[in-house]
Computed example of a mutant assay.
Amino acid sequence: MTLLQRVSMLVTVLVLGACASAPETKYLEPLHQAKLQSILVVPVNNNTIDVQAPTSVLATLPFMLAEKGYYTYPVNTVKMLLEAEGYYEAAEVHAAPADNLAALFGADAILYVTIHEWTAQYMVLATHTKIDFEYRLVNAQGQLLWQARKELVYAPQQQNSSGNPLADLVAMAITAAIERAAPNYLPLTRTANGQVFYGAETGLPPGPYHPKYAEYYQKLEQPKATQ
Score class of each variant (00 low, 15 high):
residue 1 M to N: 10
residue 3 L to M: 12
residue 6 R to G: 10
residue 6 R to Q: 01
residue 11 V to E: 01
residue 11 V to I: 11
residue 12 T to G: 03
residue 13 V to P: 02
residue 13 V to F: 08
residue 17 G to H: 10
residue 18 A to D: 02
residue 20 A to D: 04
residue 21 S to A: 07
residue 21 S to L: 11
residue 24 E to R: 12
residue 25 T to Y: 05
residue 30 P to T: 03
residue 30 P to R: 08
residue 33 Q to I: 04
residue 33 Q to N: 00
residue 34 A to M: 01
residue 36 L to H: 13
residue 37 Q to T: 14
residue 37 Q to C: 00
residue 37 Q to K: 14
residue 38 S to C: 08
residue 41 V to M: 11
residue 41 V to H: 10
residue 43 P to H: 08
residue 45 N to Q: 14
residue 47 N to Y: 10
residue 51 V to C: 02
residue 54 P to Q: 02
residue 55 T to F: 05
residue 56 S to Y: 12
residue 57 V to I: 15
residue 58 L to N: 10
residue 61 L to A: 08
residue 61 L to W: 00
residue 64 M to C: 01
residue 64 M to R: 15
residue 65 L to M: 14
residue 70 Y to E: 09
residue 71 Y to N: 00
residue 74 P to T: 07
residue 80 M to C: 02
residue 81 L to P: 01
residue 81 L to K: 13
residue 84 A to Q: 15
residue 85 E to W: 03
residue 94 H to V: 07
residue 96 A to C: 13
residue 99 D to L: 01
residue 99 D to H: 13
residue 100 N to I: 13
residue 102 A to T: 07
residue 110 I to Y: 06
residue 111 L to N: 09
residue 112 Y to T: 11
residue 114 T to V: 12
residue 116 H to D: 15
residue 118 W to F: 10
residue 118 W to S: 03
residue 119 T to K: 06
residue 123 M to A: 15
residue 123 M to N: 12
residue 125 L to N: 06
residue 127 T to Y: 10
residue 127 T to E: 07
residue 128 H to N: 10
residue 131 I to K: 02
residue 132 D to N: 12
residue 138 V to S: 01
residue 140 A to R: 15
residue 142 G to N: 04
residue 143 Q to R: 14
residue 144 L to S: 15
residue 145 L to K: 04
residue 147 Q to V: 03
residue 150 K to N: 08
residue 150 K to I: 10
residue 152 L to Y: 03
residue 153 V to R: 08
residue 156 P to Y: 13
residue 158 Q to Y: 08
residue 160 N to Q: 11
residue 162 S to V: 04
residue 164 N to R: 02
residue 168 D to L: 11
residue 173 A to T: 09
residue 173 A to Y: 06
residue 176 A to P: 04
residue 177 A to N: 11
residue 179 E to A: 11
residue 180 R to M: 06
residue 183 P to M: 00
residue 183 P to G: 00
residue 184 N to F: 07
residue 186 L to K: 06
residue 187 P to T: 09
residue 187 P to N: 13
residue 191 T to W: 03
residue 193 N to G: 13
residue 193 N to T: 12
residue 198 Y to H: 09
residue 198 Y to K: 09
residue 201 E to A: 04
residue 201 E to H: 02
residue 202 T to V: 07
residue 210 H to S: 08
residue 212 K to S: 08
residue 213 Y to D: 04
residue 215 E to M: 06
residue 216 Y to T: 06
residue 216 Y to F: 15
residue 221 E to I: 12
residue 224 K to F: 14
